[in-house]
């Protein structure tokens, strides 16, 4: 799987708009506006009972988009949504399904019919019955998979698939976990941050929405620098001009540590 692993995700647009403006940090219960005629409560906000105030539900950054007021969370847990790419750890298996830890409140379910190797069709008109056991990929407990979420809601366990581009088993490399709401910052506007990290540290990076980052570099020095950089990004996610600052930081650190 040595492809150019570019994780392009259109959904990561939250952090990026007007990055230069300083945003207010708000906390739960804080009144965002009392002007309910011109503004509507967006993500992470709620109207109070008298419907004359918009208040925040999360600790996060206040953002005004058109006439919606949103709060971009700074802390939180991962909620699976259909279409998300996630890094999953196989924790249990039986003949019917694999149980995967996807850093959410429920374990993800991976059924063998969703692990069919690409390039082969599952049965065809006039053909025999589908031979799932021949075509399906086999995994073991402890394997790390990159999977896509097929279905998820608040009642049922999320269902995963490993059929698709960049999906499947990961071998080698290091996986680190960061706060899921800070993942958009690691990617940056149109992938600017992740491109910069790749170029400067010569590492392969794969970022998924459940807060896990896979990375593999030429040597341990580069990987260490990258891990420290990602931790720095996650702790400074709410500040402005982060990409430039990170670039400076990495170049300085490289000089200091004497790595190319």
């Amino acid at each position: 799987m040595e492809q150019d692993e570019e994780s392009v995700d259109d959904e990561f647009e939250d952090f990026e708009d007007d990055e230069e403006a300083i945003r207010d940090v708000v906390v739960p219960g804080e009144v965002l506006t009392e002007d309910v005629k011109n503004f509507l409560p967006g993500r992470g906000t709620i109207l109070n009972k008298e419907k004359n105030k918009i208040i925040s539900l999360n600790i996060g950054l206040k953002q005004i988009k058109k006439n919606y007021i949103n709060v971009i969370p700074l802390r939180g847990f991962y909620t699976p949504r259909p279409g998300d790419k996630v890094m999953a750890l196989v924790v249990d298996k039986n003949p019917v399904k694999y149980k995967c830890d996807i850093n959410a409140k429920d374990f993800g379910q991976l059924k063998p019919k969703n692990t069919i190797k690409s390039g082969r069709t599952r049965g065809f008109r006039g053909g025999g019955p589908p031979q799932d056991d021949v075509n399906t990929e086999k995994f073991d407990i402890g394997d790390i998979l990159v999977a896509k979420i097929l279905s998820a809601d608040r009642l049922n366990k999320p269902e995963l698939t490993t059929v698709g581009k960049y999906l499947g088993k990961k071998t080698g490399g290091i996986i680190i976990s960061i706060d899921p709401p800070k993942i958009p910052r690691v990617i940056g506007r149109n992938g600017s941050m992740i491109k910069m990290l790749k170029n400067l540290t010569k590492c392969n990076i794969f970022v998924t929405q459940n807060g896990r980052v896979w990375l593999k570099g030429e040597n341990i020095a580069h990987e260490r620098l990258l891990i420290e950089s990602i931790n720095k990004i996650s702790s400074e996610a709410h500040t402005v001009g982060l990409t430039d600052r990170m670039q400076e930081y990495i170049i300085n650190e490289k000089k200091k540590r004497g790595i190319e």
Partner: peptide
């Protein structure tokens, strides 16, 4: 609770 990022109406 607020530090954990759990949505809540107020403190």
């Amino acid at each position: 609770l607020a530090d954990a990022g759990i949505p809540m109406k107020s403190l």
